[in-house]
Design a protein around this nucleic acid. Structure first.
Lengths: 342, 342
DNA sequence: TTGAAAGCGCTAACAA
DNA sequence: TTGTTAGCGCTTTCAA
C-alpha cells in the first residue's frame, strides 16, 4: 500500500489520466470503474454516478489501445481501397465508416497499390494492428497475400464482385450479368454497330466479355474495343471515340467501363455535333452523382454502393461480436438506369 | 522455469504467435528479438539472421497494439473529413495516407458530421486511440471540441484554410485572396453583371465576401446570389442559373463556390443555347479532374490538395518523432486556371 | 551486444 | 455487486 504511494508516476507513463486515477477519485477499484464505463448495468446506480462524475470532472478518455490489448478486441476495422482519386467506391467507404462508427468501431484506411511489395507491406501493417475485421474492395486474388489473410484468422469481407469461393464473407454483384444485360438492352433498342471503351481492370474485363458473348450469341457483328489502360479519365474517353470513329465510322453505340469514360465519349460526340442517342448511343457504369443531370443525361448501370458498405459493416460487427451470419454471401444486384444517352 | 512451461497458453491469449515464441525459436530473449526487428543495427549479424529466419518460418507479424501500449507511440494518425461523397478533399487524404504509410504510420478515418453530439463522440473515439497526430480538413471552430483537442496534447494539423491562430500546425491557403483574384479576373475580362452561386459553407462564405468587396471597391454593380445550402450538386447549379436568369436576365458572369455547381450552371446555359463565354461566363472552384476536358472547359481555381496532404504528413511525422518544425504554418497558395468558360 | 525485471493501461477470470 | 489477481504482448530501464 505504502509502496503503491511511492511509485505513483513512473518515468514510463504517457502522462495522460488513467482509469486507476479516475477509480481512486470515485473511491472504487479500477475494475469497477471499467465496468461503470463499459457495462453500466452491472454496477449499482450510486457507484455508476460516482464514476461518471469523476470522468466528467477530469475529462478522462479511456485508452482503447490498452483496452484492446487486454481484451484482444481492437474495435478497429481495416478497409483496403484502390488508390484512385475520384472513385466509385467512396460511397461504400463512407457508409461502411458511418455504420462502424455507430457501433463503436473505427475505420483504418489502406490504399492498395500495384506494387506487390507495397501490397505485402500493407497487409503486414493491417494484420499488425490486429483489426477485428477487414473490408476489401474487390476480390483478393490467390497468392501469398490471400494465404496470409486466411491464416491470420481475421474476418474478411470481399466486395463489389461475386465468386463461389470467397475468403470468408462477400457483398457484391455479378459483372457478367451486367455485361449481358447491357448487351440485351442495346440490341433491343436496335443498335448494331457496337464499340467498347474500357479500362484495364479485372471486373471491367468480365463485364465486357459477357457483353461480347451475349452480342455474338444473338448474331451481332464485330465489336471494336479501345482499352485505355489504367487511366479512367474523361479525356481518355474523348480520345477513345476519335479512335473508334477512325476504324468504325458508322458506330452507333458505345458501352463504357466507367461513367467518366462514357462522359468523355459523350463530350467528344457533342463536340462533333453528333445526335445523341440517334446517331450514337452511350452507356456507362457507376452512376456517379451528377451524370443524371447532364445534357444529355447518361444511361448507365447503378450499383448501390452505400448498401454494400452497410451490409459489410453489419457482417464485420456481427463476426467481431461472435454472432453467426446465416448467409455470408450477399448479391446486392444492380440496375440499368435508362436516361437520354441510350 | 518449470512453471513457465506449465503456463504456456493461458485462456486469455489471442492465440496468435507472439514475440516470445519467435524469440524462443531463435534462441534469444524476447527483448533481443524485439531489437532485431526494430533496431537491427543494435544486434549482432548472427543473432539478426536467426531472428529473421524464425520470423520467416513462422510468418510472425508483431502486435502493434501491444507495441503501442508499451512505447506510448501508436503510429496511428487520425484524419477528420467532412462526409460528402465526391469531395475535393480526396486527393489530400490519399496523399496524406500514402506519405504516412511510407513512414510506417496508419491512417484512421473519421467523418465529421453536423450533429454536435456525434462530433463529440468522434473526438472521444479519436483521442481514445491515442493517435500520434490528427489531421483536420478545415479549421477547428472554437468550443468544447477544440478545447479537448488542445488539452489532449496530440499534435494537430488544420488545413484548407488560413488563420493566425491555429490550434497547432496549419497547411492551407487564403479564401479571401481567391475571392479577390476571381473578382479582379472577371472585371478585367470586362464582365460586369455578376452573380454568385454558392453552398452554405464557412470557407465559401469568405471567398464570396471578398469577391463582393473587391467588385464593390472597384465600382462594380449589384451581385445577385443564390445559396444552394448543403447540396453542392450539378442539379442545384442548373436550378441556380434558372433562378438567376429570372432576376437578372442579362447576367454575364457567374462565380461558383464549387466546380460541380459551376458545371450545373454551364449545363443549363448550354441547354439554353447561350454562348459561352460570350453571353455568359462561368468560374468554378476546385479543378476536379475532368473539368479540363469538357466542352467548354471550365475556368476555375486550382488547389494543390496532394501537396497539402504531403506537407501535413511530414509535419505530423516530424512531431511524432520529436523533431521541431521551423515554420508550422504553410500557405500552399492556389492558381486561377484559365480555360474556355471565362 | 545481450538480458532480467518491470511496467504500459486496461480487462478476463475468479472469488467474495 | 464489488474486488483481487494476473495477465494481454510488447518495450523501457537498468545491469551485466
Amino acid at each position: 500500500m505504502a509502496e503503491a504511494e511511492h511509485v505513483r508516476k513512473s518515468r514510463r507513463s504517457s502522462g495522460a489520466l488513467t482509469l486507476r486515477e479516475v477509480a481512486k477519485l470515485a473511491g472504487v477499484a479500477p475494475i469497477t470503474a471499467s465496468r461503470a464505463l463499459n457495462t453500466p448495468n452491472l454496477v449499482s446506480p450510486e457507484v455508476l454516478k460516482r464514476v461518471q462524475d469523476a470522468v466528467e470532472r477530469t475529462g478522462y478518455v479511456p485508452n482503447r489501445i490498452a483496452g484492446g490489448l487486454a481484451s484482444s478486441r481492437s474495435r478497429l476495422i481495416a478497409a483496403v481501397v484502390p488508390s484512385t482519386v475520384v472513385s466509385v467506391f467512396m460511397g461504400t467507404i463512407e457508409s461502411l465508416n458511418a455504420s462502424l462508427f455507430d457501433a463503436g468501431y473505427q475505420l483504418m484506411l489502406g490504399q492498395s497499390s500495384y506494387s506487390a511489395q507495397r501490397e505485402e507491406m500493407l497487409l503486414e501493417a493491417i494484420i499488425g494492428r490486429r483489426p477485428d475485421g477487414i473490408f476489401i474492395t474487390g476480390l483478393m486474388p490467390p497468392g501469398r497475400g490471400r494465404t496470409r489473410l486466411v491464416s491470420s484468422g481475421i474476418p474478411v469481407v470481399e466486395s463489389w464482385d461475386l465468386t463461389p469461393t470467397p475468403i470468408d464473407m462477400l457483398v457484391g454483384f455479378s459483372h457478367a450479368a451486367i455485361g449481358q444485360d447491357a448487351a440485351k438492352y442495346l440490341l433491343n433498342k436496335g443498335y448494331g454497330r457496337l464499340a467498347i471503351v474500357r479500362a484495364e481492370d479485372e471486373r471491367a474485363n468480365r463485364r465486357m466479355t459477357a457483353f461480347r458473348e451475349e452480342i455474338h450469341g444473338r448474331g451481332g457483328g464485330e465489336i471494336f474495343e479501345v482499352n485505355v489502360g489504367a487511366e479512367r479519365s474523361l479525356k481518355r474517353g474523348r480520345e477513345a471515340l476519335i479512335e473508334i470513329l477512325q476504324i468504325v465510322p458508322n458506330v452507333d453505340a458505345v458501352f463504357c467501363s466507367s461513367d467518366l469514360l462514357a462522359l468523355g465519349v459523350l463530350t467528344e460526340a457533342r463536340a462533333r455535333r453528333m445526335a445523341i442517342p440517334e446517331e450514337i448511343a452511350v452507356m456507362g457504369f457507376g452512376d456517379i452523382p451528377f451524370v443524371s443531370d447532364m445534357v444529355p443525361s447518361l444511361t448507365t448501370v447503378r450499383i448501390n454502393g452505400e448498401q454494400i458498405g452497410a451490409v459489410a459493416a453489419q457482417f464485420l460487427i456481427d463476426r467481431a461480436e461472435n454472432r453467426t451470419i446465416a448467409n455470408p454471401i450477399v448479391n446486392v444486384g444492380y440496375s440499368i438506369i435508362v436516361r437520354e444517352s441510350a
